[in-house]
């Protein structure tokens, strides 16, 4: 098996790293800010990001810091693409109130979260985003990626449908520890 021991699960009310809960005081998007302050603190670009990017960014940050591994590829997936930020952008072009926001438009692509992680972690390998119905569909995609070259891949599910409705389950694939 190519899965390593390292994985993280983030929901609006909990953070679980390698099976152990990380204590948090806040919930929802405020919890993501709390995690940012605890684990990062010096990357103000975080506050420009939409919630999907904040979620993937913080999950990757904790996972990489705690595992000591440096992945060279990022493969994420979800069911709803960038729908939360798409909805936010739509509000800026409503009829009668048309002020399209470039700052929001840049986040209306789901793969932007993989770009944010690549920039932060200086990953110049592969980044890709898939839209799938079920989490199980991702595994063959990751394995066939690993099959074609040896690497450590940060991969998993990263979904945000509304401001306080999100779910991430991200793990490191590669040689077993």
């Amino acid at each position: 098996m190519l899965k390593t021991e390292h994985y993280i699960v983030i929901t609006p009310r909990s953070v679980v790293l390698n099976g152990k809960a990380i204590e948090v005081n806040e919930t929802g998007s405020k919890m993501l800010v709390e995690l940012y302050r605890r684990y990062v603190g010096d990357y103000p670009k975080f506050f420009k990001m939409d919630t999907l990017c904040r979620l993937g960014f913080i999950a990757a940050e904790i996972l990489i810091k705690e595992s000591g591994r440096s992945p060279d590829a990022v493969i994420l997936a979800n069911r709803s693409a960038s729908i939360k930020n798409d909805t936010d952008y739509l509000a800026t072009i409503s009829e009668g109130n048309y002020y399209p926001s470039p700052a929001l438009f840049v986040y209306t692509l789901p793969n932007i979260v993989t770009g944010e992680i690549a920039i932060r972690q200086a990953i110049q390998g592969e980044t890709a985003f898939y839209i799938l119905d079920q989490e199980e569909q991702l595994e063959p995609i990751i394995l066939s990626t690993l099959h074609s070259k040896r690497s450590t891949v940060l991969a998993g599910w990263c979904e945000c449908s509304k401001e306080n409705e999100f779910y991430a389950k991200i793990q490191l694939y590669g040689t077993i520890d």
């Binding site: 980044t127 985003f129 898939y130 839209i131 799938l132 569909q137 995609i141 074609s148």
Partner: peptide
């Protein structure tokens, strides 16, 4: 499978197919 990787999507989808 849907590939949504910005402008590179069409090439990335072919790479996914190949793999």
């Amino acid at each position: 499978i849907v590939v949504s990787n910005a402008c590179t999507s069409g090439v990335c989808a072919q790479i996914t197919a190949m793999r």
